[in-house]
Amino acid sequence: MRLGLEEMLQLLQEVERGDPLDFADLPMDDDELRRLVMADLLQRDEQLQTEASPEECQLIYMLSTARLVLENMLLHLRLMRLEQPEGTAEAQLQSVLRRLRGDDADNK
């Protein structure tokens, strides 16, 4: 199923309802930024679909997602270090790492 830009923007809006992004202090229009990013992703996807097998596409998307999640986590941790007293950010980092490893220590 191939969706166009408008349909993808509507789906993105639905996703953001559950976990909204904060564009509060950025000097740009958030809807226009979403549109630019989604248009770029759709263009890259169209090109990738013509050049790679479905398995290669899935691998590329998985690796890209992992890279973005890691980058987001690093940025988040850096912000925590700047905003929170020393030690608090480290404790939160350890909590995040335990959850990622599947440890239930935080839930006991």
Rank of each mutant, 00 (worst) to 15 (best):
G87N: 03
V37F: 02
A24N: 09
V37P: 00
T88G: 04
E55W: 08
R2Y: 10
K108L: 12
L93N: 01
C57S: 14
E14W: 06
Q84Y: 11
E90H: 00
M38S: 01
E55F: 07
L42R: 01
L33V: 15
L63W: 05
P85Y: 06
L48I: 03
L12T: 02
D45N: 11
E86S: 10
D30S: 12
R35G: 00
L63P: 01
L12Y: 02
L100G: 06
L36H: 06
R78T: 05
Q94R: 14
D104G: 14
K108D: 13
E90D: 03
L21I: 08
V37C: 01
D22H: 01
D22T: 02
R67T: 11
E71M: 03
D19S: 14
D104E: 15
L74C: 10
L63G: 09
M38F: 01
D31V: 09
R101K: 13
L93Q: 09
L26A: 04
R34K: 15
L79F: 10
Q49A: 12
M80C: 14
A66L: 15
R2P: 06
P27Q: 03
A39R: 14
V69K: 06
Q13C: 05
R98V: 08
R67F: 08
E51W: 09
L97W: 05
L100K: 05
L21P: 00
F23R: 03
E46K: 07
R35I: 00
P27S: 05
G18M: 10
P85T: 08
Q10T: 11
T65F: 10
H76P: 01
L42Y: 00
S64L: 11
A24E: 12
Q94C: 13
Q92T: 07
E32M: 05
L26I: 08
L82Y: 05
L12E: 04
L9W: 03
N72T: 13
D25A: 06
L82A: 14
T88F: 09
D25G: 12
R34C: 00
L21Y: 04
L74D: 08
D103K: 10
A39W: 02
L70A: 05
L68D: 11
L11H: 09
R44E: 10
E14P: 02
L77I: 09
R2A: 14
L74I: 11
E51H: 09
T65H: 08
D103E: 15
D29S: 04
M8D: 02
T50G: 02
D104Y: 09
A91I: 10
A39E: 13
V37E: 02
E83L: 10
A91V: 13
D45F: 08
E56Y: 04
E56D: 10
Q47Y: 12
E7K: 11
E7Y: 00
S64G: 15
